[in-house]
Amino acid sequence: MDLDWDDLRIFLAVARGESLSAAGRVLKRDPATVGRRVSRLEEVVGAPLFARSPQGYGLTDAGQRLLAHAEEAEQAVTRGAEALAGTTGGLSGQVRIGAPDGCANFLLPQVCAQIAAEHPEIELQIVALPRVINLSKREADLAIAVSPPATGRLTVQKITDYHLHLVAARLYLKEHGPVETLADLEGRPIVGYIPDMIFDKELDYLSEIGADRVTLGSNSVSVQLGMLREGGGLGIAHDFALPFARNLRKVLTDEVSLTRSFYLVRHAGDARIERMSRVADMLMSGLKAEVARLEGLT
């Protein structure tokens, strides 16, 4: 059985996008053309690769088996292209990095700017989403996570610990009185995540301060920080974000001190792609240094 790489590339796009239209946008092809190519590939392999439904295209058992081989072919093509490009010491090509918005807003811009300055031909894209990045659908090439995934053919490396504390705006504390004990939190407005939109258990901070409700909520760390800066109440904030919000002050630092971790997640097979491995190494060292630098400013 001869499989054409272009057909496999189309198969991967449909598998990841779960629809012909999504695959067409990625491939810059008409969805009808994508559908015909999928049907042709199914004829070649002699089995349906997708289960069609109003919800989209889901992989059949045969499709699941082909997926792993198609991804291996994709990685081989990428490695071959890099080998033909030669080894100049510089990096080129596109790398998409997915991250929760706290990391994406306050850490990754500095780190990625430094990588780009050292490697002008690289194209780095930051995808900031208030949810877990789906690597299997290639929403990103590399992902930053706050807890290591338990499933999937993935490589997971711990990057660094980071710290969080209870904070409030100085003007809020001046107008509403100091917070000197946990009992002083009773009746105070709390800023935090919308409870039913917390996408990782590590982000559930309410139990840390004994709060049972959020007065001002958002699924975005940046929006929460804005609410706190405007005197909306008290809330948990990343130490590395506080240099960007100079009017916020830590309170109850002995009673409320949280430690969490960042992890770098990528497809296991991508470890053999030099560009991905080098960018991953630079991301890890850069993020670790940037967390230490910003936390040191607080």
Rank of each mutant, 00 (worst) to 15 (best):
E274P: 05
Q114D: 13
A268T: 10
L206G: 00
E175D: 13
M1S: 14
A145Q: 10
T60S: 10
S53I: 07
E186I: 04
R266H: 10
L124Q: 07
E118Y: 10
K174C: 06
K158P: 11
E18M: 12
A81W: 13
D281H: 12
E208Q: 15
G269V: 07
A104V: 03
R65W: 08
R16S: 14
L67H: 11
V256S: 01
A76F: 11
E175R: 15
L287N: 03
V14C: 10
S285W: 06
I209K: 00
H119Q: 01
L287P: 04
P109V: 12
V291R: 01
S39G: 12
L41Y: 07
R153T: 07
A128V: 02
A85Q: 11
A271Y: 03
G89W: 06
I273H: 07
R29D: 11
S218F: 05
R36S: 13
F11C: 04
P130A: 07
E202H: 08
L225C: 09
V291A: 02
T155C: 11
R9T: 15
L228R: 00
R275L: 08
P149I: 11
L216R: 08
L203C: 07
L129C: 06
A85C: 08
R260N: 13
D270P: 03
L67M: 13
A292Y: 05
M1A: 14
D196P: 03
R65D: 12
F240Y: 14
Q94E: 14
R275Q: 08
A83I: 12
F106N: 02
L12E: 09
L8A: 09
L297K: 11
G90C: 13
E274A: 10
M227N: 05
K137R: 15
D281I: 01
T298W: 11
I144P: 04
A76D: 14
L154D: 10
P54D: 05
T155S: 13
L173Y: 02
G177Q: 07
P109Q: 09
A73F: 05
A280K: 03
E186N: 04
C112E: 07
Q114S: 12
A76K: 12
S136I: 13
V179I: 13
V256W: 00
R188E: 01
A289T: 10
R275I: 04
L287K: 06
L91W: 09
T88F: 08
